[in-house]
């Protein structure tokens, strides 16, 4: 057999070597390992969140944000209260002096 024929034979053998291949079997306890990984992934999300929140920079920024929001609420609430009381005074004086516009319909329509 010459070299060319020998190579050709080897190539054919290599290509045919997988023809009667049987399926490789997965390693045992695959389901257990999948479940463990799924649980670990769920845990790790919370772990990551916890680790992120407890970082000094994040914790300090968060604290500052809370203080700022509180201050903002106090300041704006004060402003809103002043506007509200002005409106209340205007309303009470309206009630007292009856500023409402009387029309002809009001005199005719005596029923509420």
């Amino acid at each position: 057999m010459n070299k060319k024929e020998q190579i050709s034979k080897l190539i054919d053998e290599a290509l045919a070597s997988v023809e009667s291949l049987s399926r490789a079997e997965a390693k045992p306890f695959l389901l257990t390992r999948i479940q463990a990984r799924m649980t670990k992934e769920t845990e790790s999300v919370w772990e990551k969140a916890g680790w992120f929140i407890t970082r000094p920079a994040v914790a300090f920024s968060g604290l500052c944000m809370i203080i700022l929001i509180n201050l903002a609420v106090i300041v704006f609430k004060g402003t809103t209260d002043t506007a509200g009381s002005t409106e209340q005074v205007a309303q009470s004086s309206t009630d007292e002096f009856s500023y409402t516009v009387a029309t002809i319909y009001d005199t005719e329509n005596t029923q509420p």
Partner: peptide, 16 residues
């Protein structure tokens, strides 16, 4: 070495 390959074909399969 694919575990499903027959023993006598292991070498050829590894080349493939």
């Amino acid at each position: 070495n694919h575990p499903g390959v027959q023993l006598e074909k292991k070498e050829s399969a590894a080349e493939l």
